[in-house]
Computed example of a mutant assay.
Amino acid sequence: MKIEKILNNNVVVSRNESKQEIVVMGRGLAFQKKVGESVDTSKIEKTFVLENQGISEKLAKLLKDTSEVYLNISSKILDYAQSQLPYKLDEYLYVALTDHISFAITRHKQGIHLKNPLVWEIRKYYKPEYQVAIKAIDIIEQETGITLTEDEAAAIALHLVNSQLSGENMAAAIQITEMVNTILNIVKYHFKMELDESSINYERFLTHLRFFAIRFIRKEKLEETVDQFFYEQIKQKYSQAYACTEKIATYLDNQFHCNLTKDEEIYLTVHIHRVTNRHKLK
């Protein structure tokens, strides 16, 4: 195993037997070493594989000013997150989360506590990610002795949500959260009811909205597969839900200058009918 890149005295980039790029951590691993020399395997404490070679460049820049302790913490958090979440995490999280944790701890030591205005929405709409983030706060405390706030947990959860996007655009994750929140409010106001947030139908609706919002932000349109007759049937059968969908379409057009496809209108209409009708029956 040869050193391909030295990130700092304790972190190097190498390749495994499968020729995959790996980041290797260990105390003094690169001390008095040069690129091309062998890695002292007895000093290796942590190894993780990188599929995206550009990530090592970003880690190199980050670790010039940030302790690899935070990279190790991030690695532990992401190992746990990957075991709990149903989707593959973007490798950029190694960079984003390391940077976030380092900055959060620096702010904590300086007595600066930033309030996260999206805590309530994140806790409510992204429960799996939020639960992972709460565990992340525990991991950070175990490793550093510092207890970060719920506001920081919400920020970590957003990083996980954002992993389903490009990996670097936190603004998109915030936009998705706000979009989901607004659509849910439109449904509540249209039907003049509170939704049963403990119901399976609500969870299904929320999941649909999240992935819908992700596609919308990415500008990924569903292919038109529905025929006009079926579309008209849905409009008539679920007329109240469709009227609500029209309000949502108006909001999306005004806010994002983008129109729903007929398939998306049908998906939304059916989900809205299900979540509101089951609530009425109950």
Rank of each mutant, 00 (worst) to 15 (best):
G167V: 00
A154Y: 06
A154D: 11
I200K: 12
Q175F: 05
I186G: 03
H208K: 11
N162C: 01
I186K: 04
H208N: 14
L195V: 05
N181S: 15
E194D: 14
N162D: 07
N201G: 02
M179Q: 13
H159F: 11
I183Q: 11
L184C: 08
G167R: 00
N169H: 09
A155I: 06
D151Q: 07
M179I: 13
D196K: 10
K188M: 12
E143A: 13
N185F: 02
E203D: 13
Y189G: 08
L158W: 02
T182K: 15
L209P: 08
T177W: 00
S163A: 15
L195I: 07
K188G: 00
H208W: 06
F205S: 12
E197F: 01
T149K: 10
E203T: 11
E143D: 10
I156K: 00
L158C: 04
D151V: 03
S163E: 01
A172R: 09
V180M: 15
H190W: 08
I146N: 07
M193E: 10
T182P: 00
D196A: 11
N162T: 00
E150K: 13
I183C: 05
D196P: 07
T182D: 10
L165H: 09
G145S: 06
A155G: 02
E150C: 03
N162I: 00
I186Y: 06
A172S: 15
